[in-house]
Design a protein around this nucleic acid. Structure first.
Lengths: 333, 333
DNA sequence: CTGTTAGCGCTTTCAA
DNA sequence: TTGAAAGCGCTAACAG
C-alpha cells in the first residue's frame, strides 16, 4: 500500500500540486472557496498526511531540536527535559533526547549525529571537553544553548542556577541557626564550574561571617567515595557540626551514612542540601534544602533556543542567565 | 556560507555524486583505492557531513523512533526512557520524546506528528483511549510497541510487569509476617489494566490464604485524594494492619500521612510498596518494596521495536511480555 | 486564482 | 570501476 502523496491529492482534487501545497501552508488568500473545498475533500478521502521529511529537505528546517543531558536519570535533567518538551510542544517543535553520560566522546558523537539530522538547534548540558566543537557550532551560527554550566572561552549562552547564592543561602542559614563548623561535600560528577561556584559561595559566606575556613571540611568526591569521605570528615577535630550537600545525590549518601552509623540529624550533625528531594518533606527529620528552579531553567533554555532559531534576537543577548535558588526550611538544621 | 553537499565533494574529488554516495555507504567493493582516497580527502578538506534528511527522503527510513510516555517526571518513565535511549544509541537510532500526560487528545496529536515526521516506529505507554488509531497503525503495519499496559482489542504487543505476581509477592510477604487485615491503595493515574491486575493479585493472594476480602480496605484514588482516602481507610473497624501501596507516588502519600498524624511504621501500620523508591533503603524505617525492572522493560520494548523495524520477525511474536517483580525486604513490614 | 517548473541532497538502477 | 539520470515528496518563484 503506497503512501499517498501530495500528487495523489492534487490529482484527486483536480488541481496542481502547488495549489495543494498552498493549501497545506494555509496560504488561502487567493484560493477559490471551491478549490479549497475540493482539496479538503481529497485530503479527507485519501487520508493524506504530509511528509515532514520532504518538507524539511526543501525548507531547511526540521522543527526538531536536540537535547543532550548527562543522564536523564538525574532529577535535574528530567525536570529540565520536561520543561523543554513542554515549551517545544507549544511551538510545535520536537525534541530528540540524548544521554552523554558526562563523556566527551559520546557528546561529540551526538552533536554530530544531531547536526546530520539537521536539527534546528541543540540544548546541551556540556561536558565542557569539546571546546573546539562548541566554537565551531557557534561560529557556524548554529543555535546552541548551554544549561547548568559555563564553558570557558566559548561564547554560547548558559542558563543556570546562581550557584554562589545557593551555597550562600545554605551556609548563611546554617550560621543563623548557630552552627559554626560547617563542611561541604560536592560531587565529582557535577561540572567543574558548578562545583567551584558552590564552594566559592560557601567560603565567601563563611568569611563574611568571620568564620575561618578549614580545608578539611571541604571535599569533592565521586558518589561512590562519599561514604569514606564522610567518615574522614567526621573524624576531624574539632568536630564538624553541619554539612552542606552539594547536590541531591550527595545528600542521599549523607543520609545513608547517618542511618548506618547512627548519627542523629540535626542533633549530632545538621544537614542542608542543594537540590530539592522527592522525600524532603516527609523524611524524618524533614530535610532543609536550597532548591533550584530546574523547570524554569529548562524553560528559559528552550525559549532562548527557539528565539535564536526563529532569529528573533533575544531581548538582550546575555551570555549567562542566572536563576535564583530558593531556601526551603525544614528540620534537618 | 552554503553547506557543502555531496556534489561539492564529487567535484572536489573529480568523481561523480554516485561514486561518493557509494563511498558513504561503504560499498567499496568495486572502488579503486585511488578514488577512495580522493573522496576521503575531499570530505576531509570540505568538512562534509551527509544530510540525513535528504537520505531519509530517499530511503524512507529516518533511523528515529518516537517514545510517548505519560510524564517523563515519573520515575518509571524516566528509567524506561533511559533504557530505550541506550538501546537505540547502540543501533544508531535516535529517539524523540513526548509527554502525553495521560491525555488521549495529546497522545493522538503526538502520534500523528511523529508519523508525519516519518519515524520508523513508536513506543507508547498508551492512554488506552485511542483504540481506533492504535488499530490503524497496526493494520498499516507500522511498528508500535506498548509498555506498561494492554489495550483490549488491539493486537499490539505489550511489555510490562507481571502485576499480579507483584501484588501477590507483596501481600504474601505481609501475610507471612503475620498481618491479616491488609489494605491496598492504587492510584487513578495508573492505567486501568495495571490497577486491575494489581488489585486482582491482591485479592487472589488473600483468598488463597483464607483471608476474607473487605472492600473497605481497597481504594483507588487520584494522588490528591489519597490523604483523605487513607484517613477513611484507617478509621474502618476492625483496624487495618498493613497497606500495600500500588505505586511509588501512593507510597509517598502514605509516608506523608504517617508523618503528619504520627503513625509508627510498622508498629501501628505496616507498609509495602510496588516500585522501588530512591530513598527506600535509608528511610526510617527502610521501606520494603516490590521493585519492577523498569530498565529491562524499556530495553525489551526497544529491542522488540527495532526488530520489527528491521523486519526480523521476533523470536516468537508474543503479544505480552511479562517481567518478574522482585521483593526487596526491608523494615516497614 | 492556479499551474509549470525547477530544485532541496541523496540513492540507485543501468549503462558505459 | 565509475557516471548519467531519474526521482523521493514537497515548496516556491513566476507565468498565465
Amino acid at each position: 500500500m503506497k503512501k499517498t502523496t501530495i500528487a495523489d491529492v492534487a490529482q484527486h482534487a483536480k488541481v496542481s500540486k502547488s495549489t495543494v501545497s498552498q493549501y497545506l501552508n494555509k496560504r488561502y488568500e487567493y484560493m477559490a472557496e471551491d478549490t479549497k473545498k475540493r482539496i479538503e475533500d481529497a485530503i479527507e478521502a485519501l487520508d493524506y498526511r504530509p511528509n515532514a521529511v520532504a518538507r524539511s529537505l526543501k525548507q531547511k528546517t526540521t522543527m526538531t531540536i536536540g537535547v543532550i543531558v548527562a543522564n536523564i536519570l538525574h532529577n535535574f535533567s528530567t525536570q529540565v527535559m520536561r520543561a523543554i518538551e513542554d515549551f517545544c510542544h507549544e511551538a510545535e517543535f520536537h525534541v530528540i533526547i540524548c544521554n552523554a553520560d558526562d563523556n566527551a566522546e559520546k557528546e561529540k558523537q551526538y552533536i554530530e549525529m544531531l547536526q546530520a539530522k539537521q536539527v534546528d538547534g541543540i540544548i546541551l548540558i556540556p561536558t565542557g571537553d569539546n571546546v573546539e566543537l562548541y566554537n565551531e557550532m557557534h561560529e557556524a551560527n548554529f543555535p546552541v544553548v548551554f544549561i547548568d554550566r559555563i564553558v570557558e572561552g566559548v561564547a554560547i549562552p548558559s542558563v543556570m542556577l546562581d550557584n554562589e547564592s545557593a551555597a550562600d543561602l545554605a551556609v548563611q542559614h546554617l550560621i543563623d541557626k548557630g552552627y559554626e563548623r560547617i563542611g561541604i561535600i560536592t560531587n565529582e560528577i557535577r561540572s567543574v564550574t558548578t562545583r567551584m561556584e558552590r564552594i566559592y559561595g560557601y567560603k565567601k559566606t563563611l568569611q563574611r561571617n568571620g568564620i575561618e575556613i578549614n580545608d578539611q571540611y571541604i571535599k569533592s568526591l565521586e558518589v561512590s567515595k562519599i561514604q569514606a569521605g564522610l567518615e574522614e570528615m567526621l573524624s576531624v577535630k574539632p568536630q564538624i557540626q553541619a554539612i552542606l550537600a552539594g547536590n541531591d545525590l550527595t545528600m542521599m549518601e549523607i543520609l545513608k551514612y547517618a542511618k548506618k552509623n547512627p548519627i542523629r540529624i540535626p542533633e549530632d550533625l545538621a544537614v542542608i542540601g542543594i537540590d530539592e528531594l522527592s522525600f524532603g518533606s516527609f523524611f524524618e527529620p524533614a530535610i532543609t534544602v536550597v532548591a533550584q528552579p530546574a523547570f524554569d531553567i529548562g524553560k528559559k533554555a528552550a525559549e532562548l533556543l527557539l528565539s535564536k532559531i526563529q532569529n528573533k534576537e533575544p531581548e538582550q543577548e546575555l551570555d549567562v542567565y542566572r536563576f535564583k535558588p530558593e531556601l526551603i526550611v525544614r528540620n534537618s538544621c
